[in-house]
Amino acid sequence: MSLLEIKNLHASVAGKEILKGITLTLEPGEVHAIMGPNGTGKSTLSNVIAGREGYEVTKGEVYLDGKDVLAMEADERARAGIFLAFQYPVEIPGVTTSAFLKTALNAKRRHEGKPEIDAMEFLKLVKAKTEKLGMPYDMIKRALNVGFSGGEKKRAEVLQMTMLEPRVAILDETDSGLDIDALRVVSEGVNSLRAPERAFLVITHYQRLLDYIVPDHVHVMAHGRIVESGGKDLALRLEAEGYAKYINAAA
């Protein structure tokens, strides 16, 4: 069984059709990249899969391990193993990163029939993960994303991903706003999570990220459809040629 199956997905925002029939299959262990010009529906695709309100699916299906994703609420999808690394992680004053992480982790553990993690075990786990990502451990005492730099926010997203160990991770323009050092750290974090049972959907505008997170498949999205698919070489070609031909093709 495929890990994530997206079949002929159509979705609208405020009555305007953005996704016009996306079909995509992720097998376990694979990394897929979706590239394309701005405003083409890449972020809409990630939000629709994650279950954000305000996106209306008008047609099509999404399955995770054969389970109907579109029938689940956003929190159920996350517990089932879908993780969206946000392009713009929100700042939430008053909620500490630590309380948030622990709540999220325990929600997942309960879902899997495991007991809640005890406080000491949790702190040990966070300490190990933050060290690996080169993050100051004290960061978890701070309010979630509040006052974090762009790089810190993205690192925090990867920290959450490593804690929650999703089946499918969707990285929505994770490279935006990152300098080259932060990009490397974030990519290393992602790469360390690559595993035979896990798949990644990496959404990006630039080829640069794919130098670090090397995809198995690259898809070009334009005007709400996947217009071309290929191997990692496709990303290099796009970098050289730009998106002009895809934009013009449908215009």
Binding site: A50, G51, R52, E53, E73, A74, D75, A78, R79, F83, L84, F86, P89, V90, I92, P93, G94, V95, A99, F100, T103, A104, A107, K108, H111, A143, Q160, L164
Partner: peptide, 23 residues
């Protein structure tokens, strides 16, 4: 949505946000 996208159910998410608001 941010909290729900991490698997936190709406009631718990609301409680976290309220505690955060009062914090």
């Amino acid at each position: 949505f941010y909290l729900e996208a991490r698997g936190i159910d709406p009631d718990t998410a609301r409680a976290l946000l309220v505690e955060g608001f009062l914090a």
